[in-house]
Structures are given as structure tokens and as C-alpha cells.
Design a protein around this nucleic acid. Structure first.
Length: 220
DNA sequence: TCGATGATTGAG
DNA sequence: TCAATCATCGAA
């Protein structure tokens, strides 16, 4: 296979920058069902591909959203939220954990990002188990701090272009969800009334309303 | 420079 | 329900 063919295949499988230049809430909703892909190049002959289906996201806006890191304007930390859409915003929190966002906003808005809150593990599960130090697949990436640990995402990936299949961190097309549930965002004090958390509804009808891989099953 | 805080997690 | 733990932010 030629390099050019590879390029075409890659780009077909990846939401482009225009996908992220739309209302943050819409992007957050449509990221549910996509795949978060992490390529780890340990050495020349050790390349790992880790991925998970995005089952839970949250939208964070700009000046009208007091829960957003961008609410008070640009700071060194939140710079990616004000930059080009489709790039990674990784931040450190609670002294222990990283969280990963994708910058997303309609072009007339100054800032915005989508927090990726939970994944259903797909590829490289045995590596994720090592990184997370657990064998329990349900708790491998069912939370914003857990999934960054499972995919070894830290601040070195801040600002990465997530619309390019050749970068270490990007997003690919996944499934077309039948139903997505929206609810209040988790762990915030203000703007609780905004229903900007988006969750993949359970596929198989065994009584569960939401995906088994979400960070919390309770819906507000 | 300094105190308060947090888009969390895991243990109890 | 609660402590751990520290980068980040805004006030001084």
C-alpha cells in the first residue's frame, strides 16, 4: 500500500476541523459514539494503539458559562480553549489527575471545549490494565481522570491536533448512537441548570438506561 | 508572594 | 462521606 493511500484512508476516518467549529454543546453530543485514539511510540518496534468508544462528554462554554475554565478570560492554562478548534486541552487537577478536552466552538464564540468523561475500552485493553493497575474493565476508563491514566495522557499532549490520524492523540469515527441522554454536568457548583452532559444510552436492553462505562449512572 | 480551590478518585 | 494532593488563579 502506498503512503498516499494511507493518507486518504486516515482522513476519511477522522472528523475534520469543521466538525469542531460548531456550537460546543452540539459537538459534545456528537462526540458520543466516536473513538478516542492514543498512539504510543515506545520505541521503533514497540508501537501501541490504545482506543476507547466515547460514552460520556460535557460541554464547557465561555462568558455565559460560570462553570467553564474560560469564564474569566484567557489564562496560561486554558489557552487551548481559545485556540484552533479540534485541539487537545489537557489540564491537571486535584493534585493527582489529568483531564482531556477537545477545543470546540462556533466561529463567533471566543472559547469552548468538550471534556471527555468516559470511554468503553476497545483496543489495547491489556496495556490499559497495566497503566491503571486493575483488571476490572468497567473501571478502566469510567471517569475523566481514569481514562487519561488508561491512555497515558498528560500535559505533554496539551495542544495536540486531534483531527490528524498521525498524531499521538486523535478522534476517529465510531458508531452512530441510537440515543443520547443529556443531564447536568458533574462536579461543578455553578450553572447546574445547563444540561450539557451527554451520555450514550445502553445498547442492549437489559434494564440499563445508560452505558455501563459511564462515570456515574445517576442522571440529573 | 500566598491562600483558597478544584470539570476527581478510591477507600471507609 | 471524606481525605489526599498540588497546579493554577486571583488577590494582596
Amino acid at each position: 500500500m502506498s503512503y498516499d493511500n494511507c493518507k486518504d484512508d486516515d482522513s476519511l476516518n477522522i472528523p475534520n476541523q469543521e466538525f469542531y467549529y460548531r456550537h460546543t454543546e452540539l459537538v459534545a453530543k456528537e462526540l458520543v459514539g466516536k473513538k478516542l485514539v492514543r498512539i504510543i511510540r515506545e520505541s521503533k518496534d514497540k508501537i501501541y494503539r490504545l482506543s476507547g468508544l466515547i460514552v460520556e462528554t460535557e460541554a464547557y462554554g465561555f462568558d455565559k458559562d460560570p462553570a467553564s475554565h474560560a469564564y474569566r478570560g484567557v489564562t496560561p492554562r486554558n489557552t487551548p480553549m481559545f485556540g484552533e478548534a479540534g485541539h487537545a486541552y489537557v489540564y491537571f487537577t486535584y493534585g493527582n489527575y489529568y483531564c482531556v478536552n477537545v477545543s470546540a466552538r462556533s466561529s463567533e464564540v471566543k472559547a469552548g471545549a468538550v471534556l471527555i468523561r468516559a470511554l468503553q475500552p476497545l483496543e489495547g485493553i491489556h496495556i490499559m490494565k497495566i497503566l491503571r493497575n486493575t483488571d476490572d474493565e468497567l473501571s478502566l476508563s469510567s471517569g475523566p481522570g481514569k481514562l487519561t491514566q488508561a491512555l497515558r495522557i498528560d500535559k505533554s499532549l496539551n495542544g495536540q491536533d486531534m483531527t490528524n490520524a498521525r498524531t499521538q492523540l486523535h478522534i476517529e469515527y465510531g458508531i452512530n448512537p441510537q440515543r443520547i441522554i443529556s443531564s447536568s454536568r458533574i462536579g461543578i457548583r455553578e450553572a447546574r441548570e445547563k444540561k450539557w452532559r451527554f451520555i450514550l444510552a445502553s445498547k442492549d436492553d437489559n434494564g440499563d438506561l445508560v452505558s455501563r462505562y459511564v462515570s456515574r449512572k445517576k442522571i440529573d
